[in-house]
């Protein structure tokens, strides 16, 4: 769409620039998620719909696994902002994915307290076990390995956040067991939060 119907322009030079968000299939929220978003919108002043962009993106990620271009467009429409505004936000925060990820995203904390307790070794071990590098997904599509910065559980270092749940006090030796039980038992295999660790 050009605003300049009368004006001639040179031919397009280059069309590709950065790696673009996957447009994905046409996207609309499921009725339940849409209702949930509408409920969230009531928390903010009516003229500040934009505030709900993070909740909306979480819902979209829940629905599709990652955030597609069409999802950004859909959210922009609902919140009355431009898709560029949404992409701006998506690209800023680390917890949104714009590409498909594995069933379990292993976020290994690499910041000081975890690193002092061997987080680097945990990552190396995970890489070796899954035959991937940080940022990649294994061939089965089960695990995506991501190195992240401080997760805020430094007393139980090193910590791995699997999707949204924590698995604490990891050691290079226990990594294999964690992967195996994740494969068989899903997220219930995780040590969970604070109390669970203390009880141990």
């Amino acid at each position: 769409m050009s605003f300049h119907p009368k004006m001639a322009y040179d031919a397009t030079f280059h069309k590709s620039s950065r790696t673009l968000a996957d447009p994905g299939p046409p996207f609309t929220f499921t009725p339940e998620r849409r209702a949930r978003l509408d409920e969230v919108l009531t928390r903010y002043p009516p003229d500040r719909k934009r505030s709900a962009v993070l909740p909306a993106l979480y819902l979209a990620q829940q629905q599709h696994g990652y955030i597609t271009g069409n999802a950004m467009r859909h959210i922009a429409e609902i919140l009355e902002i431009t898709p560029a505004d949404v992409e701006d936000v998506v690209s800023y925060y680390t917890m949104f994915y714009t590409k498909p990820v594995g069933r379990f995203v292993l976020n290994v904390c690499r910041t000081l307290s975890c690193a002092l307790n061997g987080a680097e070794r945990v990552t190396e071990e995970l890489c070796a076990k899954l035959h991937i590098k940080p940022g990649e997904t294994d061939t089965s599509g089960t695990f995506t390995l991501v190195e992240v910065e401080c997760l805020g559980a430094c007393d139980r270092a090193p910590v791995v956040m699997v999707n949204d749940a924590w698995h604490e006090c990891v050691s290079p030796e226990s990594v294999g067991h964690m992967l195996d039980s994740l494969r068989t038992r899903g997220e219930s295999a995780l040590t969970g939060c604070h109390l669970a660790v203390e009880k141990r």
Partner: peptide, 16 residues
């Protein structure tokens, strides 16, 4: 948004 490396007090309060 307790994110300063080495800080993990607030989530204890919020959770417990």
């Amino acid at each position: 948004d307790e994110s300063e490396p080495g800080t993990f007090k607030d989530h204890v309060l919020m959770e417990r």
